[in-house]
Design a protein around this nucleic acid. Structure first.
Length: 209
DNA sequence: AACCGCCTCAACCGCAGAAGC
DNA sequence: AGCTTCTGCGGTTGAGGCGGT
């Protein structure tokens, strides 16, 4: 709908919007983004909601700088797979494709500068593309095995549980799988989700779809 | 203190493939 | 089978922060 498109909000998300999105993802899961966009009352597209969730609000996300170990992994995987950021991201639990993409751009700019090739266009190397063809078999196997985003997030959650336990024991102030950076005190979106689950009329919301 | 350039990162866009009807 | 809608991916952009001069 053109009229709907025109009334859609763009630009940075507010805390209120984040809060709403987290609540509704808690209720309906992180799948039906157009539906969530509609029932939540957010003037955002489903696409925008998904992006916000995946890149910023998902509790399994790791925040902070890319570690040297992650950096090595990214360089290694990029040499194998080229610019397949989502695939690379799967090998780095808690990191998003966007984050890795951004890191790579920064990294390549630094490298180009150091080599005195400011004009170099950042693109997958040809060797990476050749290797990529060989990797297609592995690709297909992974696809046949049905390694979905759910599985990926499950992996992340599993790892985050282990890491958080270690962090708790080490008395770290903030675990690697921290919540989004804003502070709601005791009444976080996640506690609201729990509350909402008790009282929300699911049938009513479904009827809206 | 003001300006400038660089860096980072959140968010948008277009496209392709999947799913649903 | 073909059309429409939804989802996910990769590329790109722009705002804001930060350090240097």
């Amino acid at each position: 709908m053109v009229l709907q498109e025109e009334s859609m909000r763009k630009g940075p998300w507010t805390e209120q919007e984040d809060f709403q999105l987290v609540c509704f993802v808690g209720l309906f899961g992180d799948r039906r983004w157009d539906f969530i966009a509609k029932v939540s009352g957010l003037k955002r597209t489903g696409k925008s909601c998904r992006l916000r969730w995946v890149n910023y609000l998902h509790p399994g996300l790791k925040r902070g700088k890319i570690t040297p170990h992650e950096e090595r992994l990214i360089l290694d995987l990029h040499s194998k797979w080229g610019n397949r950021w989502s695939r690379i991201a799967r090998k780095l639990p808690g990191r998003t494709d966007n984050e890795i993409k951004n890191f790579w751009r920064t990294h390549m700019r630094k490298v180009a500068k150091a080599a005195g090739h400011d004009h170099v266009v950042v693109s997958p190397s040809s060797s990476a593309q050749i290797i990529e063809i060989g990797e297609e078999l592995i690709d297909r196997r992974e696809e046949e095995d049905g390694y979905s985003m759910d599985d990926i997030w499950r992996d992340i959650d599993d790892q985050s549980n282990v890491i958080n336990q270690v962090c708790d024991q080490s008395n770290f102030e903030c675990g690697p799988m921290s919540m989004p950076p804003w502070d709601y005190g005791e009444y976080s979106p996640w506690t609201v989700v729990e509350e909402e689950n008790k009282v929300f009329d699911y049938g009513e919301a479904v009827a809206l779809s």
